[in-house]
Write a protein that binds this DNA or RNA. Structure first.
Lengths: 202, 202
DNA sequence: CCGAAAGTACACCGATCTGTATACTTTTGT
DNA sequence: ACAAAAGTATACAGATCGGTGTACTTTCGG
């Protein structure tokens, strides 16, 4: 079943692909409102005409930017999950390992969804659904892992793991201390192990 | 001792105070780059001349906005800490209680520092020091609490508590699930208690 | 081989952006 | 009482914003 508010996507011609790549870097590094369409077009080596023929509006570029990043993150994560076994411990570790790689390569300034949310005030903006959707999806993912583990309250554990994960992205982006995602990983797996042990004894 | 990079502050005349109040609301709710000086002046009931006579530039308004919010948060937190005893458990709970109140009243869209960071690319921007400074200060605060508690590794525990705290602000701002700060509070205090118990036994 | 799709080059539009200038009035501390 | 500080009203400047229009060229699958 599709999401209730699936955003409208466009077909990506070669030029559109370069626009999306340029917009992705610029939006993430400088912020959405700080980047103009002229700069995006110039950076992509494309005329503004082409840009508007493909995307129609700057808002649509923003939507494609977030949807594309969301898509790539989920694929990246799926690849990592495919390499490990079915045990909850292994899967949880794999998720955080993926996050660690991803942040090192693509998210030095923190989570693009959180950052985009800071610049969008209107909840009816089509990008809103993507942002909230990814966080809910991550929570559901953690919840599935925790349910598979034999723990007393998988929903609460999953929420706690999400807090650690989101906190780590922030701490990494603001460079509060080194290797925040690794710490989050260790603490999350420790919580899972402790909850499982507690359940076996109680 | 003062911070190495203390930002330049201005004297707040009545007009400047209204500008700062208006800018605070607008910047937080709509984002910094999305708000123009004309709107700030109009909302403050002040002419643009007055605005520029007091602040000199929009960038300086941004600096004052963040410095003021940082100042008010620290004062708010100090008030809460004054009402409780010296025990680490009480102080940690007081910090999260303050956060819960603060987010409910002033931070429905997440942490203003994190949100501002999303819009500022230049690390030499005077606002940068304020943003990073607050997070480091929060980490130091948590570290102090954990050191006072008899736990094996207070620095790591403090970092973990910071992750829970920052994660909660994000989860609250994006409304991933209800009462995220309360969950973070419960989990943080549980971690502190567990670490203290482990230390007494080992 | 040909037509449609995709692209280039470039001029242009109205709105909005940060910031300034001029001339005058109100508030306030001593 | 008086001068300095703080304020109003308003017009303006130059740059940039998102977005459009026209005329021409390139690419490529059936």
């Amino acid at each position: 079943m599709e999401s209730v508010q699936a955003p409208q996507r466009i077909t990506l011609t070669p030029g559109a692909r370069r626009v999306l790549a340029a917009a992705g870097t610029l939006f993430y590094e400088r912020g959405i409102h700080a980047v103009g369409v002229d700069l995006i077009a110039a950076e992509a080596g494309v005329t503004k005409k082409t840009l508007y023929d493909r995307f129609g509006s700057k808002e649509q570029i923003v939507v494609e930017y977030l949807a594309d990043r969301d898509e790539r993150w989920r694929a990246f994560l799926a690849d990592h999950l495919d390499t490990v076994g079915d045990s909850p411990e292994q899967r949880l570790t794999a998720i955080f390992d993926a996050s660690r790689e991803w942040t090192a390569e693509n998210s030095a300034k923190g989570c693009s969804m959180v950052n985009a949310h800071a610049e969008i005030s209107d909840p009816s903006h089509p990008a809103y659904a993507i942002i909230i959707g990814q966080k809910r999806w991550m929570l559901d993912l953690f919840t599935g892992v925790c349910r598979d583990a034999a723990v007393p309250d998988p929903e609460t554990l999953a929420r706690t793991v999400l807090l650690l994960h989101e906190g780590a992205l922030v701490a990494h982006g603001l460079q509060v201390f080194p290797d925040a995602v690794r710490l989050a990983s260790e603490q999350a797996t420790a919580l899972l192990a402790a909850a499982a042990a507690r359940n076996r004894q109680g």
